[in-house]
Design a protein around this nucleic acid. Sequence first.
DNA 1: ACAATTTCTGACCAATTGGTCAAATGAGAG
DNA 2: CTCTCATTTGACCAATTGGTCAGAAATTGT
Lengths: 218, 218
Amino acid sequence: MDLGEAKPEELGEALGRKPTRIQLRNQERILDGALTVFASNGFRGATVDQLAKAAGMTKPNLLYYYRSKKDLYIAVLELVLARWLDPLERLDPDGDPAEQILTYMRAKLAMSKERPEDSRLYANEILNGAPLLGEVLTGHLKELVEQKAIVIRHWCKTGKLNPVDPHHLIFMLWATTQHYADFEVQISALLGEEKRDTTYADAQSTLERVLMTGLLPR
Amino acid sequence: MDLGEAKPEELGEALGRKPTRIQLRNQERILDGALTVFASNGFRGATVDQLAKAAGMTKPNLLYYYRSKKDLYIAVLELVLARWLDPLERLDPDGDPAEQILTYMRAKLAMSKERPEDSRLYANEILNGAPLLGEVLTGHLKELVEQKAIVIRHWCKTGKLNPVDPHHLIFMLWATTQHYADFEVQISALLGEEKRDTTYADAQSTLERVLMTGLLPR
DNA sequence: ACAATTTCTGACCAATTGGTCAAATGAGAG
DNA sequence: CTCTCATTTGACCAATTGGTCAGAAATTGT
């Protein structure tokens, strides 16, 4: 996914030079650390010093790889966005509706469990008005959603699914799954210590039951 | 709701003096403006200058009413939290399950529509680890949720509701309703202009249908 | 080994930020 | 009107922040 207007401008990107081993290793360290820092502090809350420390290097060294904090943020956001979009792209129009929706829901829920920082970074960006994602939302994402909405609408029309607004079904799936990553603090505060390790299993079975009963004709 | 540890420390709070008219008027202006600013920029992203301008006064003047940016933030957060908790408190154990859950869902959805800034401020706080809400989450909120969970569990046991994990049902209701405020930018980017004004009506009917079909025994 | 290039660093800077303060202004009680 | 207390402000400050730069250190190709 490309965040058009603003150019991440990594080292030697414009010039044709191929990245060295050190470059590769450091860029990975930087992006890894930056994901954590940005996810838990937001863009404005994160300082370049924090980002540098998270990557295990000094501030000027980090700025040698990414010309500015914003450039780094954009690079992280692109990575996250790609992973965020992936499961929806896999929704198969020719598959069994129940199975496809189940698979999608499970994939999103698994992402909340395995990569909560991705989800929180994305949420933070949207929450603050998506200043950098604007074009992606109305462009690529909208196109993808529209395409999958047609599939869902078709499933409804052929009676394989109870009639439901495709867009709002998608929103419902996003909301219920991402909630577990975005509101993790609240969730784990409300479920006692005992229930904490079965959180995702319980969430999954609850969602499966309610959604499948609600969506599938009997 | 009281955010214990940290004291908002409004003007003349400790001293027994009763607030003047000017105090009342200005504190309302300040809180109103601060909600907007904090909701769209987060705590760190908001500057005292922005907050002052939003309240229509100078920076030192704002700081005359709230000793620090953090104090003001806490005051706003307390207001928001009270409104956030209210609908759940109203869930009536003696009412009809379907009607009670429907009413609750509608109330939360209406809040997303009418007070999206409340929702976004709250989400932002949780997303960033709820540094100030920690005690409220494990205290008052947990107590409230536990109490309502018992009600829901009882509804299930008496067969008025399909068996469902009460906590995760509550999470599901929170997630699906708040999503419309927190991800508003994304929602309105994905629904075209045409669908934008029926968003909440469509969301409500979709949620009603899926949830009621999924939750109520036939 | 050695020159060329990449990688790294300490010192530094300008801008922004949260917050202070003395003094000016305004409002209300008698 | 006048005294008192509440309100408001411009000027100011120390700390933090994003970013620069000249040069040191390390790596690489030959």
